[in-house]
Amino acid sequence: MLIELEGLSKIYEVGTQEVRALSDINMTVAENEYLAIMGPSGSGKSTLMNIIGCLDTPTEGSYRLKGQEVGSLDDDELAEIRSTEIGFVFQTFNLLPRMTAFQNVELPLIYGRAARKVRTDRVWETIDAVGLKDRAHHRPSELSGGQRQRVALARALINQPSILLADEPTGNLDSTTGEEIMQIFRQLNQAGNTIILVTHEQYIAEHARRIVRLLDGRISSDTVS
């Protein structure tokens, strides 16, 4: 099993108050699944995504990624896992504005300490795969929203992660462009990638083969279409 969550909770302390963002989550995700996490804002879906993405750690319970317990790792060990196992796609793309598309895509390889020659080849390959070969040396500000999200996708994919995590990936795109991005996700899933999508839009979630709904920090439904 790729992901195993067991009795997972996340409690924030806001002032003197305890806020339970997640309560007793039990869930598994197999390889090559295409999963959407849905829920209204405040339901805990972002917290869940952050924990799965190793940006945050659970307060209680266990999270095993490829059999390895992740909950007790330190900062740098988590960074290592993010570098090798996770690819993030954000709603606001989160490209670094001073770098070209090429450099943005290359960055995870640099942090992963890949050799220069390997990097260049891999970046071209990946940028080509998202159809942006001729825009590689443009900065994000010179690219359209759809193109930016493709760059972000290429960046997420460059280290060939086990999980592609997308947080409202079409939220800042018009519907046509959004649809194009969803097409790429579909292809990626067909090619064997595991994809976890966080969204509050039903029609986006319907691209996935499994939908997990959260409400008040608990799983309210888990359906496979």
């Binding site: 993405g53 940006l55 900062d75 740098d76 960074a79 290592e80 993010r82 570098s83 090798t84 993030f88 954000f90 989160n94 670094l96 960055l107 995870p108 942090y111 992963g112 960046r155 997420a156 280290n159």
Partner: peptide
């Protein structure tokens, strides 16, 4: 701060 967040999300360690 946000840039640092992004860099960390894509694998940067503290020392990086």
């Amino acid at each position: 701060t946000r840039e640092i967040g992004v860099r960390k999300a894509i694998g940067a360690r503290r020392r990086d």
